[in-house]
Nucleic acid binder design. Sequence first.
DNA 1: CGTTAATTGCGATCATTGTTCGCCGTTACC
DNA 2: GGTAACGGCGAACAATGATCGCAATTAACG
Lengths: 235, 235
Amino acid sequence: MSENTSAGGSVWLRPDRPGRGPAPEHSRAEIATAAIALAGASGLAAVTMRSVAAAIGTGPSSLYRYVANRAELVELMADQARGELAADGTGPGEPAARLLTIAREGLVLYRRHPWLLDVPATPVPGPNAIAFIEHCLTALTGVDQPAAARLETIALFSGAVRLCAQAEVEQRRAGRGAAQWQGELAAYLTQVAGDGRHPHLAAALASAAGAPAAGAGDPFERAMAKILAGLLSAR
Amino acid sequence: MSENTSAGGSVWLRPDRPGRGPAPEHSRAEIATAAIALAGASGLAAVTMRSVAAAIGTGPSSLYRYVANRAELVELMADQARGELAADGTGPGEPAARLLTIAREGLVLYRRHPWLLDVPATPVPGPNAIAFIEHCLTALTGVDQPAAARLETIALFSGAVRLCAQAEVEQRRAGRGAAQWQGELAAYLTQVAGDGRHPHLAAALASAAGAPAAGAGDPFERAMAKILAGLLSAR
DNA sequence: CGTTAATTGCGATCATTGTTCGCCGTTACC
DNA sequence: GGTAACGGCGAACAATGATCGCAATTAACG
């Protein structure tokens, strides 16, 4: 039994250390890369120990030499994907503009790796998540907030980005495929809106249907602009 | 094979209809209640088809007469729990204050049912989720936003509530139990902060450690106030 | 009232998945 | 050169989600 399962609450506290035995034939990065490829092709649910093991040409049990369990594997995947984030958003300009740049970067990351939206939040941030936080802190230079409050700001900010990305990706998934599904959903909503007990919702849906492109502009841009205005306001 | 598996994209499109055969011995509400009890006692992972079936005194396969799959069961649980939300926040006052009341209500709901944070977002809202939206729309009366934009506002608002609740519950989970875990996390963070490559993070952590109660007041109140200020600003 | 058809309950069962155990070969350290 | 630790991996286990088919039951229909 390796120490993967015994000590070390998180993966990041258990670095690859060269031991006494033979050199490992694989690496965490290689495993994560293979897992990311699987997730990109068939979703996070397709990332099973067996499929990942087969992808790198070994048996399932071999993976447990590198990872304590599947959750840690997913953690590795998520952090490695976050490593693809560009380090933009540190140029001149207002903090809001800088963070908006970072937000756009995050959106394209979620578009490229939709399975990231299925990764549960983990308590311990990986190195790339920490780099992202540092990056956001850099962009927050000049904002009138105590240093501790800025961490909360970043948490809310990245949560908002994730939420917007989730809405977009979800809409995309629904858009593909089932036209029948769209119809059923519409029937359901109109039924609910027509029962008289949800007048405001009925009005909102009617408004949305009447002027589909009413709120012109990118919804993501709108949402992030509003949220950033609130988050960066004088405390 | 019932129609649970064949047609109807969502549970809400497949109401309990009295058929020709014997009356069902259970109901969706009863099953959801039993499942909620299990989740409250041992977490959402403890809600298995077998455990729920045993809780109501039947076999696992019987559940599939009421629910197409486990995901639908969880959907039922989530919507039923949302039904416990009080309908406060419609009194007089500014919209921000009304929504803040609703946000507090949501926080206590997440505190009472922490497993709700583990429920993945579902595309089709259940009846109680729709009632919640209607409720928020009522509270948004008088806000200078087109009706369609208000739906986005509500989505961002409830997402923020969920995010804050997640942070609080997560902190509570970490607080209980592992003091060793706390130490390892602290060691990890100080190591990261001390490597010189994350100066802003080091400063923020030092500030947070130096003045733990610096940002006095409830973090939830602070966060929601800021976010609401942004969301409700003139479009 | 007898027939029919739809529906429920459920035991048995299958496929899949995460995970563990034990053995063997390999490699670095003394 | 011995030894102790380590990696690879085949085999297996427990748990879970889900399916199938059959018997029992009941409402609708003529």
